[in-house]
Design a protein around this nucleic acid. Structure first.
Lengths: 146, 146
DNA sequence: TATTGTTATACTCTATAACTATA
DNA sequence: TATAGTTATAGAGTATAACAATA
């Protein structure tokens, strides 16, 4: 019984959508750039790109990690030249973490690689199927942000 | 500039879809049942549910983990009564790992909880938006399996 | 002799507790 | 005295290497 069969009801839609999204996400995740970076390190770079420079403590909270762990994560990123520590002139207790240009480049390369994989698959779809996805993207975004 | 703006081109569609899918997947993942199970342990249970009973080595390969690690993972699952080890009558070197009923129940509870979260969000969408998703699910499934 | 799984040991990642510097 | 971050130390989780059992 294909999952599409269940989408007549709302409960069925939830199940079918969940399975499809998780499966596709897994495929996309496996396409990540392997520079022997931890998943948390990669995620931290992404957070810095999204939220901009942040105090180390706030970055730890955003990644749901304890401050000592974030100290190590940032040290690792700094050694690879992917992020930098800066002093806050107003409050010298704060350590501001900022994405370095190399970090931006790495994230961009990572994104390009995943998009290339997805683009390749999109070309195998029919124009109608692509149109359906175009309509669905804003709805999926809304769902994720609710 | 909203991501939807980019969906006019195919390359833009790939980016927008990737971001939306990954974000929604993250939300769904965070809704997982916390029984103090490792992500790998939970993933291993899911693999057993999908593929059925498997030799320990094949299970390790499916989870991309080394055999000694899988030995530990399975031991943990067995202690919690979520999986069982069985002997293969044909080749007594093999250890077949099978999902126990408790493991099935745990996975079902996990699925129910995530679906509940998603159902709640689906109710906040308009009928038109839900219709769009119903159309998109089979296309997303096709993408993931390509 | 080759293969499957386990045990022994080491390394990585993250956490809690104690410490330093600044407010 | 309180707060931000770091250092010290310990506990999970996984890997490689050595071993035992079976083919």
């Amino acid at each position: 019984m294909p999952a599409a069969t269940f989408t007549h009801t709302q409960a069925g839609l939830a199940s079918a959508l969940r399975i499809a999204v998780m499966r596709l996400a897994r495929r996309l995740r496996n396409e990540r750039e392997d520079v022997s970076l931890t998943l948390t390190q990669l995620s931290t770079l992404g957070t810095l790109a999204r939220l901009g420079p942040l105090p180390l403590g706030e970055l730890a909270a955003a990644e749901r990690v304890q401050p000592p762990s974030m100290t190590r994560i940032v040290s690792g990123l700094e050694e690879r030249g992917l992020a930098v520590r800066e002093a806050d002139p107003k409050d010298r207790r704060l350590v501001i973490v900022r994405l370095a240009d190399e970090g931006k480049a790495l994230l961009a390369a990572d994104r390009r690689r995943r998009d290339a994989w997805l683009n390749h698959r999109l070309r195998e779809l029919s124009p109608v199927e692509r149109a359906v996805l175009r309509q669905a993207v804003p709805v999926l975004e809304k769902l994720a942000s609710l």
